[in-house]
Structures are given as structure tokens and as C-alpha cells.
């Protein structure tokens, strides 16, 4: 059903809420170490698609497979996260009453059992890895600040840092640059490209210049299904895409 190149495989997925079809016969493939951007107008089903991949919403029909054989529609959020799918939300959600350090420490890939966490003590490698991530997301000076006190952009970066700490195989990143300055946006694009060298990244974004910076394959969603796929230039030239999204 899918070859080795494929990390994530969606086929014929549909879901409806009280008669409204949020996702309609959607098929999508994400390869290993692929950076893919997903664009589409509001209500195109981008967030619902992420909900389906991460187990928050069950599809009414269709198949969702991870690494060829793992049926994601049978698993819940926790199990899917454990498999190595990390998700950054549209609205940055970090643990506001924890420090930046604790946020990252919670995300760090470690046994997730109740008693393992109770008796957990960070090892030297753990501390080193967290310091490294702090440097990557440029929050080292703020490591003991409460996450609630970060700026919007910093929260976005912290959430990306938490994704890194999770060490996932696939990152789903929902609107990472909303509320960022232009300089930060450019940095974020760099960071995501860097990450995509070792793992797969799916980015949902509205900001076209950011998508251009990513230089990735673009998938256009509209009304719950794929409208066009290819390079940004290719899809921008597609008359259907202009009609449904860009032209307006």
C-alpha cells in the first residue's frame, strides 16, 4: 500500500461534523525527510487534517498509515505522539505556569510512565540536550522565565523547541510564524529547513513569502480535498488555485 519512501500516507479520508464535510476524500503522502507546505483558505480542512493525523479526530472513512503499516485511525493522541509524531498548534500552547526549562524538560524524549517521571532525575546528556535546544531556539537567557511571560514569537519558538526535544520522526507545524517579525520569520524558515534534514516536516501556513523561503513541495487544500500539488510557482499558476485562494 505504500513504499519505503513514504512516512505518512492518507488515502480517501473524509470526516463530517453534523453534515458539514470538513475533509472530503483527502489523499496525501509525506516522504521521509521531506519538507512539505500546506496552504489553503480558511475552512479548507488544514487543522482538521492535523487533528486526524494526531488522533484527535477519527475519520468517518479512509486510511491513515504511518511508516507503512501502523494504522493511525486506531490509536489515540498519546500513542501517536509516542510513535514519533509531534505537533505544534495554531495558537501557541505552552505550559504557562512552567519555566522555559521545564517546558522543554517535559517534552524531552524519556519514559512517559507515572512512576518513571516521579523518580526521574535529569542525566548529564539530558541537561546538555536541553541546553542545546535552548541555544537553537534562542531562549537560553530566558530559561528560568515562566512561559506565560514570553512574547508571542518566543512562545512559537518554545513550542518548536518542545517539538525538537520530543525527537519526533514527523513534525506537524501549524502556522509557526503567525505574530512573528519579518526577521524572526526568516529565521524560522531556516530552522525548519534545518530540521527537515533529519526528519519530515509538514508546515501549514498562510504567509506566502515564508512558504517561498521554505522552498518545499506545496499542497493546496480547498474544501477538504487536495486542489493542487507541486512547487510554489507551479501551484500559483494553477487557475483553480487562483480562483479558490490566491486570487481573492
Amino acid at each position: 500500500m505504500s513504499d519505503r519512501q513514504t512516512l505518512l500516507y492518507l488515502d480517501g479520508v473524509s470526516v463530517s461534523f453534523d453534515g458539514f464535510k470538513a475533509i472530503n476524500n483527502l489523499s496525501l503522502i509525506v516522504g521521509h525527510r521531506e519538507l512539505q507546505a500546506i496552504i489553503g483558505p480558511n475552512g479548507a480542512g488544514k487543522t482538521t487534517m492535523m487533528d486526524i493525523i494526531t488522533g484527535k479526530t477519527r475519520p468517518d472513512e479512509g486510511e491513515v498509515f504511518f511508516e507503512g503499516a501502523i494504522d493511525l485511525t486506531r490509536l489515540d493522541e498519546t500513542a501517536i505522539a509516542e510513535l514519533g509524531i509531534g505537533r505544534k498548534f495554531q495558537k501557541p500552547t505552552v505550559f504557562e505556569s512552567h519555566t522555559v526549562w521545564d517546558n522543554l524538560a517535559l517534552a524531552l524524549k524519556k519514559p512517559r510512565g507515572v512512576f518513571s517521571t516521579w523518580f526521574y532525575h535529569p542525566s548529564q546528556e539530558d541537561v546538555a540536550r536541553l541546553d542545546e535546544i535552548l541555544d537553537i531556539i534562542r531562549l537560553r537567557p530566558r530559561r528560568d522565565a515562566l512561559a506565560a511571560n514570553l512574547s508571542h514569537g518566543q512562545k512559537q519558538w518554545l513550542e518548536i523547541g518542545m517539538l525538537l526535544a520530543q525527537d519526533p520522526k514527523l513534525l506537524l507545524v501549524d502556522e509557526p510564524v503567525a505574530g512573528m517579525t519579518d526577521a524572526e520569520t526568516v529565521e524560522t524558515a531556516k530552522l525548519l529547513k534545518e530540521i527537515a534534514r533529519t526528519r519530515s516536516v509538514v508546515v501549514v501556513e498562510h504567509d506566502m513569502s515564508f512558504v517561498r523561503d521554505l522552498a518545499a513541495r506545496v499542497t493546496v487544500l480547498a474544501e477538504g480535498s487536495v486542489l493542487a500539488q507541486g512547487s510554489l510557482d507551479h501551484v500559483s499558476a494553477d487557475p483553480r488555485v487562483i480562483e479558490s485562494y490566491l486570487g481573492r
Binding site: F17, D18, F20, A22, T47, T48, D51, K56, T57
Partner: peptide, 8 residues
């Protein structure tokens, strides 16, 4: 129950 994204 009401269903949909808004509920969650």
C-alpha cells in the same frame, strides 16, 4: 451532544 471542532 453537539459535534464538531468547536466543542473540543
Amino acid at each position: 451532544a453537539l459535534k464538531g471542532r468547536a466543542v473540543d
